[in-house]
Design a protein around this nucleic acid. Structure first.
Lengths: 230, 230
DNA sequence: TTGATACTTCGATCGTTTTCGAAGCATCGT
DNA sequence: ACGATGCTTCGAAAACGATCGAAGTATCAA
């Protein structure tokens, strides 16, 4: 197959509303079953099945059999990056009236995971606090952790050295937030911060969604450790 | 329109072979006329026209009228990034037999521009030389110019300081080369190096393509200044 | 074994999209 | 003014892909 045909094939796969929903649903990095994805996309199991097969064959998804379930996940971070780059273009231009959205959306806007890091008001607030305190320096396309940031993360128990050692992944980069339309922290350090929050019970996932809520203890810790006001 | 619908719309636009060809043709950042794009995609002018209209309306392309010509170009670097991220997935997995390609492709593989920096064997060779000499450090997802690299570019007359000052763009990043399947240098420094080569007559664009050829003087200069063996 | 659940395959339908010929509009050169 | 060129609009034909009901396979639970 020609290079261009394969390019078009990949893009076309992401270009169907049903498949787009599924891909977005997998953006938090978890693996979901075919039924969950079907429900998420609002289509029947048969339709979802054929979509999932095609996306798997094209190398967009990886599938893992576990008993009678099939867990589907994004095949690689490169796929997540593609989705993210399309999302960035799809983010509605800044308009005068912010469109009203349902309660489900409200939770997502408040806080959610974006592949493996934090997004929404939560993600942006943390990022802003880190920047304001001079721990972080984010451009539109790149970023870095300052010396004071390094020691802050070290004190919090996040081993930045270990993350830096793995040169296969960028330590620190901005990721444009589709709901806040401003950058939040991504990259290895963003992912580490996110798991740190989960592991210490600072945030909890809302059953069955990408949305996360901050626990009371999490609020206190985030304020005291990182200076985040929510 | 819902966010997901817009996501699917954008992706679907890139998902048609004709449109994909045009988008790829615009990846060097130049603006092309509708007829040029039609020919490039192997479709009639009418078909191309409707495609171009749709992509422009969707915000993927920007168009500039000049007399009876209409110059189309990618609307923003964000669009180029999306295309690049799809390309990365579309790059054929490393296979045993390298598929035979025509002479036109051969020129592209030898050297070409990728949006605003150098790609192909030329781009990869320069990047390799810089890395080997310790001027550059590239991971899979990020990179940086070393101190020796800074002074090298300074000696060559490329003002890295000025590039660093513009925090809106990452200075240095890898971009996966679809023909070589290895990273080449992108980012602000990659773009600066590319224009430097053009401005000093080290490379020349092959009429009407993204392909570039290295001039005899360019070969010498590249070898002497950057240690590149072609 | 029996029934339920998770998922896939098959087949037919239906709506969408692509495509191009023909005609129309705008601009250029002379 | 005139024809040539670049591009767009219109309309119809053809191809394609999404969808779902029905039926089939695999796993689980008892």
């Amino acid at each position: 197959m020609s290079n261009n045909a394969r390019f078009a094939e990949i893009a076309a796969l992401a270009g169907d509303p049903g498949r787009a929903s599924m891909l977005n649903g997998l953006m938090d990095g978890r693996a979901l079953t075919a039924s969950e994805l079907a429900q998420l996309a609002g289509i029947t199991a048969q339709t979802a099945s054929s979509h999932l097969t095609r996306m798997t064959e094209a190398g967009l998804l990886a599938v893992e059999k576990q008993g009678r379930h099939r867990y589907h996940r994004l095949a690689s971070p490169a796929v997540a990056q593609m989705i993210e780059s399309i999302m960035r273009l799809a983010a509605p231009e800044v308009t005068a009236k912010p469109l009203r959205t349902g309660p489900r959306d409200a939770a997502l806007r408040a806080g959610r995971t974006c592949y493996d890091h934090l997004a929404g008001r939560l993600g942006v607030s943390i990022t802003d606090a880190l920047i304001d305190a001079g721990h972080l320096d984010l451009g539109l396309d790149a970023g870095e952790v300052t010396d004071s940031g390094l020691s802050l993360f070290a004190r919090a128990g996040i081993d930045v050295e270990a993350l830096t050692a793995r040169r296969s992944r960028i330590l620190c980069r901005p990721c444009l937030d589709w709901s806040e339309r401003r950058p939040h922290l991504a990259g290895a350090i963003g992912a580490a911060l996110c798991s740190h929050c989960f592991n210490n019970g600072w945030i909890r996932r809302l059953e069955g969604t990408r949305a996360v809520s901050v626990t009371p203890n999490g609020q206190r810790q985030l304020r005291e450790t990182f200076g985040v006001s929510l």
